[in-house]
Amino acid sequence: MKVGYYPGCSLHKVAKEYNKSTYRIAERLGLEMEEIKDWNCCGALEVQAGNPLAAKGIVARNLALAEEQNFDLLTAVCPACAYQLINVNRMMIEEKQKAAEINSLMDNKNYTPGSVKPMHFLQVLRDKVGLEKIKELILPDNPLAGRKGVSYYGCFCVRPGDIIQFEDPDNPTFMDDLINVVGAETPHFPMKTKCCGATQLLVAKPTVETLTGNIIVNAKEVGAEFIVVACQMCALALDGQQKQAIKRVGGGDFSIPVLYFSQLLGIGMGLSYKSLGLGSNYVSPKKLMKPVKA
């Protein structure tokens, strides 16, 4: 199946391991994933704060590019990008006038609302690939089998529920399913959808550290050996800032590896440490790589 891939700014360098591992598992699952050419930034929430109209315009340009390059399905692994693509697409379908206004911003492009279906890569895995197919590729003796892991969704993967329309925003379960498929257990994790605040990392660091610290400490309390995320900003906060965050909330001395769901599946499929970019994670996941003693 042909899938258009919108990487977004952070995926090329700041979260290169996410990019790499996503490509690897897409290849394994038989998806022909291709980056859309000449893409631009989706503006995240920051451009929208100052110039809301321009923010819609630059997102629409990406949608128009995907349409031009004949992709029906457009996927992003950054939840903020996915949210922007889904939101603008929905807005243009629902409000004809708005669609015309947004289209008039672009010089030589025109986006037909609804011709591309943007979704997060998790949703592609769930709806287009299916859990069964993933299960077939997982090795039963992979190093994560028998461990305990929690999934952390954060905000944009599932919220705002009426726009994303992916999973139950209060208790999403697909990432838990993925962890179970790999053979690990999923203890109940109350902080699953609490926001980590990572987008404000440069603006209000203490706040973000408190929010993140609470999440990490809670994960530890329920007995998790690793945390699975689907967002490079969550990873930046939970992984990159882990030490400071735990210190801020007085959580004690420990560290928990944070994996992307693509890395989780990659480990389950027996892909190599290097090809999944696991060396680039801040908290080294090396201690997860030995099989659990029976």
Partner: peptide
């Protein structure tokens, strides 16, 4: 990409 993004910014600003 850069040229087209700038064009969008310009037009959006005018509209606003």
């Amino acid at each position: 990409a850069r040229r087209e993004v700038r064009a969008i910014y310009k037009k959006a600003k005018k509209k606003e």
